[in-house]
């Protein structure tokens, strides 16, 4: 049986009090609860403070470019369906630089999980507005305050009929661990948007701010009801729902390729007999 020590314990480059610490701890808890060994999991991350998370875990890792984790994860999953593939990066990486990939991943519906550390600010570059920053949010680079309304990833994902849409809060680690566990178990593209404070660059959306507003969706909430989910997804302000907002069991893209059930493509032999048949096609 896998235990939490196998996932390692590393010194991080994060600020004390950063939400990333508790997200990392929830993540380890979830992986252990799922019984996944480090070598069965592939993390794909981008660039940003959140994208460093898998460096502090024992696991397979491809730490690529800013915004491009989803395409790398897509290629990896399509060639080795046996891997549990988890994309781990921040709001700027996934909703800014990589937004086009976010929409396409929802539509494609591969059986992968995407965990977005959403602190509503660019932290690695020292405090510029991110796509999820609130209107009026003042930064050194936006001294007049942010003009554009924030991107609501949950609302977009539900509207696009994403297969699994959840929101967590780094202050509720056990709840977050359960959400991550459900997301990884879910068959299809799973989004877990995680609200987290940035102690250095976001003085508005602090731990206290989130803690006061976030409430866990109760048992009466039906996450398979899309109309209800759309209303819930739009809820933001004094009350912020966390939990599984929406889920469905749309067909997954992996099933489009029956030969993927045979295992990793690295191992599949090249059928030279079939290559000659292809050449005949051009006779």
């Amino acid at each position: 049986m896998v235990n939490i020590a196998e996932y390692g314990d590393y010194e991080t480059a994060w600020c004390p009090g950063c939400g990333n610490h508790s997200i990392l701890s929830s993540l380890k808890k979830a992986l252990v609860s799922l019984g996944l060994e480090p070598y069965q999991v592939l993390f794909v991350s981008g660039i940003g403070q959140a994208a460093k998370t898998p460096h502090y875990l024992n696991c397979n890792l491809f730490n690529g470019l800013h915004g491009r984790s989803l395409p790398v994860a897509t290629g990896a999953k399509l060639c080795n369906p046996e891997l549990t593939v988890i994309v781990e990066s921040g709001d700027g990486c996934n909703y800014g630089e990589g937004a086009n990939h976010f929409f396409s991943a929802i539509r494609r519906n591969l059986n992968i999980t995407m965990i977005v550390h959403n602190n509503q600010v660019y932290a690695l570059t020292k405090g510029q507005a991110s796509p999820t920053s609130e209107q009026g949010f003042v930064t050194k680079n936006q001294p007049e305050g942010v003009f554009s309304p924030p991107f609501n990833p949950i609302e977009i994902a539900v509207a696009m009929n994403a297969s699994f849409v959840a929101r967590g809060f780094s202050g509720k680690t056990d709840h977050l661990a359960t959400l991550i566990q459900s997301a990884v178990t879910h068959r299809g593209f799973s989004l877990v948007d995680v609200l987290q404070p940035c102690v250095s660059f976001n003085k508005v959306n602090t731990f206290g701010w989130y803690n006061q507003r976030c409430y866990i969706l109760g048992n009466g909430y039906d996450s398979t009801d899309r109309e209800q989910a759309l209303r819930k997804a739009a809820e933001w302000g004094e009350q912020i729902p966390i939990g599984i907002i929406y889920q469905n069991l749309r067909p997954i893209y992996d099933e489009r390729f029956p030969f993927l059930s045979k295992g990793p493509l690295a191992k599949s032999p090249v059928r030279f007999d079939r290559v000659s048949e292809l050449l005949d096609h051009y006779l």
Partner: peptide, 13 residues
């Protein structure tokens, strides 16, 4: 996306 997918695919062998 196309080339990042190819890189992800190649990473898995």
């Amino acid at each position: 996306s196309a080339i990042n997918m190819a890189v992800g695919a190649s990473f898995t062998g």
